Computed example of a mutant assay.
Amino acid sequence: MCSLSAPRDEPGSRPPGHGLGHEVEKALLGGEPRYRKADVAAAAGVELERAERLWQAMGFAHVEDDEVVFTDADVRAVRMLVQLVSAEVITAEVETAVARTLAQTMSRLAEWQVGIFRSVLGDRFAEDLDVTAQFAEAITPVMEELQGYVWRRHLAATAARELTERAGGADERVQVIGFADLVGYTRLIRDFSEVELARLIDDFEESATAVVAENRGRIVKTVGDEVLFVADAPSDAAEIALTLNEKIGGEGQLPPLRIGLARGTVLARFGDVYGSTVNIASRLTSVARPASVLVDRELAASLRGHPAYSLTSIGPTKVQGFRGLRAYALRRNR
């Protein structure tokens, strides 16, 4: 392994795509790139192979041995992750999964934030790197502090929920899974400009976020035209689904939704959800009519007799991977 002295700035030592601009890069990374990957591994006290595995798990491209890409912050990050394993906060087997999950969340956040840079600076974003660096240096600490605040609030809310509602195995619980899918999204991609499509998706996500939060649900993720959400109480899930259809239909700017709900045991892992309940909700969404809500047998049984809702059996539903799946149309009682 190389020593930790700052490497010489020789040809080929800068990372590919260094056209970002040195001052912009320094402002965003919080320091000068000083180290090769072997330097980081040595400073953190880990094998190079392990450091590379964590780097790739975070979604970053392969780095050649002689590239000077890393800063003091990279060294600290690897040390902290190793300390979490040493203190048995996480196991060595899941450290790459932890890195991967963090990366998936932060990558999307970074794309959104760079979009803010671009919208504020306009043409100067790419044409005047000094202005871009000054803007990044000024705004990045504010965003970093705001991210910390939101993270702590979500951490507290999640911990409170887990402490009061935990049942079953370590990662298993009974929940309602919901998918809300925009109808005709393929046509929208073809007919709308990028600006119009971006505005439509923003409106959809804003409406979905508000409705889910107001009814004690949680959004797991959004993927283009689809939102995946969870709720603990059957009535909360029903209210989310029906209110979403009403809100989207009432605005007139967005196409209608197809929504599928299923209740059952769910495996929750690193912020995502897995299991047959998730698959059933997804399949029900694919066969639902526009502006309708389909629920599975288990959720229908939980909602039956509720004064606010009516359920209509549509009989066995043919969906891939599930034989004899019964579905029910969920509506409000008028």
Rank of each mutant, 00 (worst) to 15 (best):
S3R: 11
S3F: 01
R8W: 00
E10C: 03
R14G: 02
G19H: 15
L20V: 13
L20M: 14
E32R: 12
R36Q: 14
D39G: 13
V46Q: 09
R53N: 06
Q56I: 04
A61E: 13
A61K: 13
E67V: 11
V68I: 11
D72E: 15
A73L: 12
A77P: 01
M80F: 13
M80N: 13
A87T: 10
V89F: 06
T91H: 10
E93V: 10
Q104F: 04
S107G: 15
R118G: 11
L121V: 07
G122Y: 09
D128F: 02
I139V: 13
E144C: 08
Q147S: 07
R153I: 03
H154S: 10
H154M: 12
E172G: 12
G178M: 13
L182Y: 08
G184N: 05
Y185I: 07
L188D: 10
A198Q: 12
I201F: 08
I201D: 14
E205M: 12
R216L: 03
V220G: 03
E226Q: 14
V227C: 09
D236Y: 01
L242E: 01
L242H: 00
L244K: 10
G252M: 03
I259L: 05
G271D: 11
D272C: 07
V273T: 11
Y274R: 12
G275R: 05
G275N: 11
S276Y: 07
R289V: 00
P290R: 07
D296M: 01
S302T: 02
R304L: 02
L311V: 03
I314F: 03
P316V: 09
F322W: 03
F322A: 05
R323S: 07
G324Q: 14
G324M: 05
Y328H: 06
